[in-house]
């Protein structure tokens, strides 16, 4: 398959249309939804860009933390982590657990809502 334009370029083009044309013509509830749509397209672009690297990092950290088989999927690693937390085997007293979860949350919020105040708080601490 060709990629000229690439998926990211296409999404960017739609975002440009929403920002520069649609939003200026819409008022009230429709205008609000146009702004939401523009923010969503920003998230889509960041997700396309960062997901592969973020998931590889998350998987590497989880494999270490759980001393798991490197072949395990990210989903099954997260389910295993959830089970250990539920069983009280990993608590907030585990620095490794807190570090992992914090790095995961930072990577996710950078994609989802990079201007959220909680991200600045996490980076400041």
């Amino acid at each position: 398959m060709h990629d000229q334009p690439s998926v990211s370029e296409l999404v960017q083009a739609v975002k440009n249309f929403v920002d520069e044309t649609a939003m200026t013509h819409l008022k009230g509830r429709a205008g609000f939804h146009a702004r939401v749509a523009s923010n969503v397209l920003g998230t889509v672009l960041r997700d396309l860009e960062d997901r592969a690297a973020n998931e590889a990092e998350e998987k590497r950290r989880l494999t270490d933390l759980l001393q798991a088989d490197p072949g395990e999927s990210l989903d099954s690693l997260n389910r295993a982590l959830q089970a250990k937390i539920r069983a009280g085997e990993l608590t907030i007293q585990s620095q490794d657990l807190v570090n992992h979860l914090k790095m995961t949350a930072i990577a996710q919020i950078k994609v989802d809502q990079p201007t959220y105040s909680g991200l600045a708080n996490a980076l400041k601490e």
């Binding site: 939401v36 949350a105 989802d112 909680g118 991200l119």
Partner: peptide, 19 residues
């Protein structure tokens, strides 16, 4: 779109919770 988008705000509370 607003109801879809709000699913990507759960991570705001995850960030706050871990902080």
């Amino acid at each position: 779109v607003e109801r879809a988008a709000i699913g990507r705000r759960v991570s705001e509370t995850e960030m706050d919770l871990i902080n």
